[in-house]
Design a protein around this nucleic acid. Structure first.
Lengths: 227, 227
DNA sequence: GCCCGTACTATTGTATACAATTATACGGGT
DNA sequence: ACCCGTATAATTGTATACAATAGTACGGGC
């Protein structure tokens, strides 16, 4: 099997570098690699059927995203997330999500508003059925919608960067049956504040949403991560 | 002249990739390249006496830092910063710098406190002499000290990322003779709040410091960038 | 037995060769 | 003159070869 065969295993839409980057990112977030585990260029490349070149380039990006740490002439290691990191992230997000909700109130498009409403009601349905996976997925998506709606590439960028860490933490255990529905109720309130154009309320609710998410996580031993 | 000669032109302390990354970053921030200018791998490599490999890796990092945008199969372009971007940055920073000042108050080390004091008094001296370049340099450093003192790698990372954009904007014209000394006065107040352990005050002052910096910039046609 | 140096191996760092893609220039057809 | 397809050149994308560095195992000296 040469490299060109492997190239056709999956969608060709993206360059190899992007494919490697995306896969590694997903694998790290999904907890496939343990914290502080060493990533070897050759091993990754062989597994994905590509040479070291795109792997190395993907590494540089992962490093800047904070998912791995590269020690020169030594290796690439999956970054560990401490409890303090998680706490810091939620506090930082509590500020920025508030700002984001404010800006979203001012700039959200009709299409985005509709997707947000749909998201909340769909989540309500899955909450009633106890579909925790779908609930978690919709939870993530709610935040992404708001990030996109705030009309600031910069804020969106930083919030997405922070949000992804949450995904890693959530992975550490199964979703909590209580927080999911509660989180979605808060989303609903934020959504309605945005819809009615009440930026002050939206900001306050989004701010509190993060604090609640963090408090819940602490109560459950820092394992849950809704919000 | 082959590549190995060039390797010894400057300090060998860092890998070529890091050297290329640092130089390109500095060049972009210094305004050497115009906005939307295309960066060619080969040209950069030849100029620095390295092959395309480290240049490409540096590109990936610069892209993630937001300094360039890479269009697949096409090229790398210096990102443009709009006036709205600048405004967004200052608002985001006004929140995060406040939080940073709070945390710095709680965690600053003695060495950091001393450097901060030294920074303020040295800046006072240069302000009196009208040394605008040194003033600008000390201004940047003051913020870096605070970022490091806040004891949060995450907050530090995001603030440094935001701060670097300011450096690009400042470049667009010469430093303003008025804002520099005013900015340092505000630094002095922040420094003293931190020193006396008044976290609430430090947060508020740092928050206001950003707002003042932005207002001043607007007054001067979005050209100045102290803070 | 322990220390230390040396050879060997594994891995990363860089350069270069080649493939694929995009941009450009040219020339014929209308 | 203009449109459009083809050839050509320029540039990026990827693979591979080679260099440098770091880690490891072995063996001699004490």
């Amino acid at each position: 099997m040469n490299h060109y065969d492997a190239k056709h295993d999956t969608a060709d839409k993206y360059s190899l570098r992007v494919r490697v980057f995306s896969k590694l990112r997903a694998d790290i977030l999904s907890g496939r690699y343990a914290e502080n585990e060493e990533l070897k260029e050759m091993a990754i490349g062989e597994e994905m059927g590509v040479s070291r070149t795109p792997v190395r380039e993907a590494f540089r990006q992962l490093e800047l995203e904070g998912l791995i740490q590269i020690i020169p002439n030594k290796g690439a290691y999956v970054t560990g997330i401490t409890e303090k990191d998680v706490k810091d992230i939620y506090i930082i997000r509590s500020l920025l999500e508030g700002l984001c909700a404010r800006w979203a109130t001012e700039h959200i498009t009709q299409a985005q508003m509709e997707e947000m409403e749909e998201n909340v009601y769909l989540a309500e349905f899955h909450a009633g059925k106890g579909h925790l996976d779908q609930l978690a997925e919709l939870d993530n998506r709610f935040h992404d919608i708001m990030y996109e709606a705030c009309n600031s590439k910069l804020l969106e960028h930083h919030l997405k960067d922070l949000h992804q860490y949450v995904l890693r933490v959530r992975r550490k255990t199964l979703a909590n049956a209580n927080r999911g529905p509660k989180s979605n109720e808060e989303h609903k309130n934020i959504m309605e504040a945005i819809k009615t154009g009440n930026a002050d309320l939206a900001e306050e609710l989004a701010h509190q949403h993060m604090i609640n998410a963090y408090d819940n996580m602490v109560e459950n031993g820092l394992h849950e991560a809704y919000g």
